[in-house]
């Protein structure tokens, strides 16, 4: 019987030499770990036939409620949560009359990717902001929308800010190159492609009428082959899809059921 959604189940010969208890603990931690941002969205939305629900069925007949799932998405190791706010948030999104969900294809979320790069041969750090852009063919891709970096805060010798010129970025009509829609699952392993070839910037940079000063300088430096992005170090995702709230998620690598991509910040925002 076909399942209702796309799912790959990989079943392999069990690890040899592992004690039964460790194997069970390993599997439990793996099942509970929020391994990808996609899994975060699935759990937040209480999607059917997820790994955690299927795994949970092995041990209990009580199904996991949406409230329980969303609670499990908060970093439980953080001790200074405003629990009243957390419950208000959970109550709001699980409201039976008007529930709220996260949508991968809703462009109101972004990734901030801390990277190592080289500028004129010297190692530098930068934070690249990436957004999902939906396309006419029903597909989507990640694009670079902004950048923050100390080395891009250029000043004239007299201390005044460097005047930047808005660059013209031609958006290619073919799709030979792009950051594919699941690049995030590999922690943007291919982020170095952005600076690989100055002629290809249009494939990766979002089309905009007005770029920030940092982006203007970044694009100009890329065009002079002065910048080489090396790799991503860490990522924070920010979702602004729930009315009156912003949530930040980051990765917590630890051996516990509360691990993986979890809510690290819950911020109230004006509606």
């Amino acid at each position: 019987m076909l399942k209702k959604h796309f799912q790959i189940l990989l079943m392999l010969i069990p690890l040899c030499g592992f004690a039964q208890a460790f194997e069970t603990e390993f599997e439990t931690n793996f099942a509970w770990e929020v391994k990808q941002v996609d899994e975060f969205i699935e759990r937040f939305n209480d999607a059917d036939h997820t790994l955690i629900k299927d795994y949970n069925k092995k041990f209990t007949k009580s199904p996991l409620t949406r409230e329980a799932l969303i609670k499990s998405l908060f970093d439980s190791k953080r001790s200074d949560w405003n629990y009243e706010e957390v419950m208000t948030f959970i109550t709001q999104v699980t409201n039976e009359e008007d529930p709220e969900y996260l949508d991968f294809n809703n462009e109101n979320w972004y990734a901030k990717v801390s990277c190592n790069l080289k500028w004129k041969g010297k190692l530098q750090k930068a934070v690249l902001k990436l957004n999902i852009r939906n396309l006419a063919n029903g597909g989507c891709k990640w694009v670079l929308t902004d950048i923050e970096a100390d080395f891009l805060k250029l000043k004239n010798p007299d201390g005044t800010k460097v005047v930047v010129v808005q660059p013209q970025i031609a958006t290619p009509t073919d799709f030979r190159k792009f950051l594919n829609p699941i690049s995030h699952t590999n922690d943007f392993l291919e982020i170095d492609k952005i600076s690989e070839d100055a002629a290809d910037l249009g494939y990766y940079v979002d089309k905009s009428e007005k770029y920030s000063d940092s982006m203007c300088l970044f694009i100009a430096e890329c065009r002079q082959n002065n910048i080489k992005i090396l790799h991503a170090n860490s990522i924070v995702y920010t979702f602004s899809q729930i009315k009156g709230w912003q949530i930040e998620i980051r990765q917590f690598n630890r051996q516990s059921r509360n691990s993986g991509w979890l809510i690290s910040k819950l911020i109230k925002t004006p509606i």
Binding site: F6, Q7, I8, L9, L10, M11, L12, I13, P14, L15, F26, E27, F30, A31, K35, Q36, D38, E39, L51, Y55, I182, T185
Partner: peptide
């Protein structure tokens, strides 16, 4: 390989 995995 472990006997459990996840797919998006």
């Amino acid at each position: 390989y472990a006997n459990i995995s996840y797919a998006s």
